[in-house]
């Protein structure tokens, strides 16, 4: 009885020591590319890409196991930046910028449970226990974490309507010609 306990304990201690020493002496500096890629990502650790946070996503990008278009909140700007960093060509036409939206708390349903407040990666939700929560629209990245944890479905992602400042022309040819155009076509 004692022999196996002792031997297993000794084995555990020795292996643990070896692991500890290995970690110390064979330490590999983090891949600088991963850090650089991570710097390009939004950094909100929202997890929409399916990787554990932006570091995980950067690692997957550096390994080449993830597509450049993995980051929904980053949109085209991030794809273009990643492509430039990795030196690859990417077809941006297929990448749609996520429709700008923000989380919206429906006050009649909110019970002030503060769960959303705790998961928000950018501190965009303001509130305290038993008080209705509100969203800072400048800080919200529409990652949806709060929507998932809300017990009363009081949070929805609401699209932000375009304003005169944010509106811009669509690419020519991506909309059908106006009815009166092309009427003179030969």
């Amino acid at each position: 009885m004692i022999v196996p306990i002792l031997s297993l304990t000794v084995l555990g201690v020795v292996l643990g020591l070896i692991l500890g020493l290995a970690a110390r002496y064979f330490k590999v500096e983090g891949n600088p590319l991963v850090d650089e890629l991570e710097a390009l990502l939004p950094g909100s650790q929202c997890g929409q890409c399916g990787y554990p946070g932006c570091t995980g996503a950067a690692q997957a990008l550096a390994d080449g196991t993830a597509p450049l278009t993995l980051c929904p909140p980053g949109g085209r700007a991030v794809v273009a930046a990643l492509a430039a960093k990795l030196g690859v060509e990417v077809d941006l036409s297929g990448v749609q910028d996520a429709v700008p939206s923000i989380a919206d708390v429906r006050e009649e349903l909110c019970i002030g449970c503060t769960r959303c407040y705790k998961v928000c990666p950018t501190d965009a939700i303001l509130g305290a226990a038993k008080h209705i929560h509100a969203v800072f629209k400048e800080a919200c990245t529409a990652c949806g974490s709060c929507v998932d944890v809300c017990p009363t479905e009081a949070i929805l992602l609401r699209q932000v309507p375009p304003t005169l400042q944010s509106w811009s022309w669509v690419k020519p040819g991506s909309q059908p010609l106006a009815a009166n155009e092309g009427a003179l076509a030969a």
């Binding site: 022309w169 020519p172 909309q175 059908p176 010609l177 106006a178 009815a179 155009e181 030969a186």
Partner: peptide, 18 residues
């Protein structure tokens, strides 16, 4: 809403075939 036409709203009388 009909798609918007971009300016200019006048064009020279010219074409490739011409």
């Amino acid at each position: 809403m009909t798609p918007l036409a971009h300016s200019p709203h006048a064009h020279a009388v010219t074409s490739v075939s011409r």
